[in-house]
Design a binder for these strands. Sequence first.
DNA 1: ACGCTCCTCAGTGTATACACAGACGGCAGT
DNA 2: ACTGCCGTCTGTGTATACACTGAGGAGCGT
Lengths: 213, 213
Amino acid sequence: MRASDRAYAALRDDIIEWRLLPGTVLAEVEQSERLGISRTPLREALSRLTAEGLTTTAGSRGVVVTDISLEDIDELFELRETLEGKAAALAAERGDPATFEQLRLELLQAPELINGGGPGLHAYYELAGRLDAAIDAAISNSYLAQAMRSLRVHLVRVRRLAADDARRLTAAAAEHAAIAEAIAAGNPRLAEAATTVHLHRSLSHVKVTHTPH
Amino acid sequence: MRASDRAYAALRDDIIEWRLLPGTVLAEVEQSERLGISRTPLREALSRLTAEGLTTTAGSRGVVVTDISLEDIDELFELRETLEGKAAALAAERGDPATFEQLRLELLQAPELINGGGPGLHAYYELAGRLDAAIDAAISNSYLAQAMRSLRVHLVRVRRLAADDARRLTAAAAEHAAIAEAIAAGNPRLAEAATTVHLHRSLSHVKVTHTPH
DNA sequence: ACGCTCCTCAGTGTATACACAGACGGCAGT
DNA sequence: ACTGCCGTCTGTGTATACACTGAGGAGCGT
């Protein structure tokens, strides 16, 4: 693996996991020494991060970690609703029903995973990821998939803010199952509506757990 | 201006204007010599182009100019309809009616510009750009605006394929005026519908002029 | 003659040296 | 004491040298 890839992955993780807080300046020499590489691959990594919006170039002060405010979260979810709603509708039109029926059945079992503790929790996140991947594959639209991928980077960052308690995750699993069911049934409007409902509930949850900080 | 900026702008133009055809390999040494800069800023430029999707890294063969097929155009417009429809609806909710009423009035005069020849044509394109910018500003959602910007790069490339005759441009101006009117009237659903209609007509025009090649 | 192996070389990946611009602090003048 | 100017210095922008990998061809062996 290239040094620039490692630097990119390391910095991306540090930002997403909030080890590098918003406003932190990422000086080239400092970071290149920290990561044990030279400035050239580091610049490549910073360039990619900036393209994704995780960092911004602040004039001649180098690049700084982008801030995420509450208004940003609203905007983020507004775009997310648009893209994922469309994606769910397209998946209902073009996807393979059997795939989503299978996912629906697995999602119905999710509460057991969630209440099962650590490894079960990880298994649930993996299952939710499989649903996302299945939708991505079903829409057969690389531009839309690309737009959703670039959005998910920011979403993971937001998700780290909210404490994902078991109650919310159980409800989310049921909402995911409803989406999978609508897609499996080949009902685009229902799939879009189910996605809208799910995203609004997620946003409410994030806001409730985050505002009293 | 930085050398990497110039390299980026030059390569971007070359790709958009089809002087660099899809499949062309952009070797670092070759391009850096052609543009009269060193490899370091060129790599930065190529990195940005790849992030935008205008080029892709093909293993160890360097980066190649991305291809655009007819299916890509369908996918492109599918995403564009989603994003610009939502943007128009948001603009109708949040935008300043006077701004769009003014744009509508100007767009009604557009046929005279279009039939006026060269400079008038340029003035029309500038006017259409002003409508896009006004919508961008009105939605007050940086993530959505960012997604639309990254999409427009590819759209410009497609537009170069289609011969924009006066008849199509006149019709497009009327469609733009309808969008501006709906936004000025504060009617989100109408604004979205007008956008959908406009994009479908644009897509049909591109396909008709391009397929018999 | 065909195939395998090794060599060469083109091209990217990385490191580092140099250039230059912006900022901060000190010093002097008022 | 305050303000304006200049020097220094940190940090990015650029160029270039070196390293390494992968591909292609030539040569030798069978």
